[in-house]
Simulated scan of single mutants.
Amino acid sequence: MLKRAVCALMVVLTFCLSGCVTPTSGLVPFVDSKDGYRFLYPNGWLETKLKDGPDVLFHDIIEPSEIVSVVISKLESVKNLQDIGDANDVGLRLQKRVIAAPGSGREAELLSAEQRDDNGRPYYLLEYAVKRTNGESRHDLVSVSANRGNLYTLSVSSLESRWTKVKDLFYRVANSFSVE
């Protein structure tokens, strides 16, 4: 009788505790109402201010090479993301002009490019393998969208050796990116 009661209690606890895990578990919201974007970043990461750098940058205090940043740039000749091209086109353009720009000391390979829509706004999710001239291999996940003549780019990056450990978390961060 006691064994059955303990087993029943264990089953109930299992169901109750599994309900506590949500897609935002372990993540903290960041909202920039001035520039009109938001995203979730890992709990315990610190914001770093850089002069002439990204609009915002957070890094892990334990693994400082793991970062999430947002860059806002002006769109010159187009008004929206689709005018630039599909996810693969934009991914290749970013690869050549930003991720592994000439003279940057980096080589990059676009591993995947996909589109998601959020409230009618397209977002391109791009995944890169990046090698630096010092031999360091990194993995970057980039979410891109456009609004009011601006291109918004959220980038989450880690060492390749840590990618399998942080992949799911970084996908949650990248998919949380939203432009108002």
Score class of each variant (00 low, 15 high):
Glu47Asn: 12
Leu57Tyr: 09
Gly149Cys: 08
Asp168Met: 07
Gly53Leu: 07
Val11Trp: 03
Asn150Glu: 06
Thr133Tyr: 03
Arg106Gln: 14
Leu159Val: 13
Pro29Trp: 08
Gly85Ala: 06
Gln115Thr: 09
Ala5Glu: 00
Ser158Pro: 07
Phe15Gln: 06
Asn43Tyr: 11
Glu114Tyr: 13
Glu180Asp: 03
Val68Met: 11
Thr22Val: 10
Phe30Val: 07
Pro54Ile: 00
Ser77Arg: 10
Leu2Ala: 11
Val11Lys: 02
Pro23Tyr: 09
Phe58Glu: 01
Ala5Thr: 06
Phe177Val: 01
Glu66Arg: 15
Lys49Ile: 08
Ala100Lys: 10
Leu2Cys: 01
Leu17Cys: 14
Leu126Glu: 06
Gly53Phe: 07
Ser176His: 03
Ala129Leu: 14
Ala5Gly: 00
Glu160Trp: 07
Arg38Leu: 07
Asn134Asp: 15
Gly36Ala: 03
Leu94Ala: 00
Arg93Thr: 10
Thr153Gln: 15
Cys7His: 08
Tyr124Pro: 09
Leu81Asn: 10
Val31Arg: 10
Val31Asp: 13
Arg138Glu: 15
Gly149Val: 11
Gly44Val: 12
Gln115Leu: 02
Val70Glu: 11
Arg97Val: 05
Thr24Glu: 14
Ser176Lys: 04
Asp35Cys: 02
Glu107Gly: 07
Val130Leu: 11
Val28Asn: 00
Asp118Phe: 13
Tyr37Met: 02
Val11Thr: 09
Met1Asp: 08
Ser25Asp: 13
Gly44His: 08
Leu141His: 12
Leu27Asp: 07
Asn43Ser: 12
Ser65Ala: 09
Ala5Arg: 09
Ser33Gly: 10
Glu76Arg: 01
Tyr124Met: 10
Gly26Lys: 12
Ala5Pro: 00
Ser33Asn: 09
Glu160Gly: 10
Gly36Thr: 05
Val156Thr: 13
Ala100Val: 05
Asn134Cys: 08
Leu9Arg: 05
Arg38Val: 05
Leu141Glu: 11
Val68Gly: 12
Leu111Cys: 01
Asn175Ser: 06
Val68Lys: 05
Glu47Asp: 02
Leu50Asn: 11
Leu169Phe: 09
Ser73Ala: 08
Leu27His: 04
Asp83Ala: 15
Ile99Gly: 10
Val173Lys: 05
Met1Arg: 06
Asp168Trp: 10
Asp35Phe: 01
Gly149Phe: 12
Leu94Asp: 00
